[in-house]
């Protein structure tokens, strides 16, 4: 992360300077504080709200139910986890919420899952195999319905706002499967 971040930032600065874009880069540096705040406040507030809802769901046993339902599949995807792992119930919640396209709402359960995966992690600053798998699953984004896209299409006057969905579902499924296969081949072949 360190190297990547430094290289990309440095490259952007140098490239911008070469192209005489210094002024807009200065703007970026001046505005990054407020930009982050504008970006973060809605996320933090929704995170807090859904964290509250999730705690309720957890105490009512909904998360355990989800876990029981999804764990046969998830255990195949995460061979390093046990079936009674708490991380697994958060991963199930995250996957389900993501499927319904509630991106922001999925973040708290994802972060919770990371927390529990970190507890089992032996080297605290290096990502464990399960973490990498979880992130791949998450970034490939198994989304079935996305309210955002449908809303945008409707707003632009589409006659078939939901027509893109079957194709998007196939693409997202391909992305997830490809990611998981590469992850499996890359990270688990030695064991």
């Amino acid at each position: 992360m360190n190297k990547l971040w430094l290289c990309l930032c440095g490259f952007a600065l140098i490239y911008g300077m070469v192209n005489h874009n210094i002024e807009s880069l200065n703007q970026v540096l001046m505005n990054v504080g407020t930009d982050t705040l504008d970006f973060a406040i809605p996320i933090i507030l929704t995170t807090c709200f859904f964290e509250g809802i999730m705690e309720m769901a957890k105490r009512c046993g909904v998360l355990n139910g989800l876990q029981r339902w999804l764990s046969p599949i998830l255990l195949k995807v995460f061979p390093d986890l046990d079936s009674d792992d708490e991380a697994l119930s958060y991963i199930s919640a995250n996957v389900v919420i993501n499927m319904f396209g509630l991106g922001f709402a999925a973040t708290p359960s994802g972060l919770k899952a990371m927390e529990h995966l970190q507890k089992k992690n032996k080297e605290k600053t290096t990502a464990s195999r399960s973490m990498v798998t979880f992130l791949v699953l998450n970034t490939a984004g198994v989304t079935l319905i996305s309210a955002n896209i449908i809303a945008a299409r409707t707003a632009e006057g589409s006659n078939f706002p939901t027509m893109y969905m079957p194709l998007a579902i196939v693409s997202t499924a391909c992305a997830s499967i490809a990611g998981l296969l590469l992850d499996r081949w890359w990270n688990y072949r030695r064991s």
């Binding site: 992360m1 360190n2 927390e115 970190q118 600053t125």
Partner: peptide
């Protein structure tokens, strides 16, 4: 996700 738990080395994620 990685910064939330303090992971520095993200391997090939």
């Amino acid at each position: 996700y990685f910064s939330s738990v303090g992971i520095k080395k993200i391997k090939n994620a």
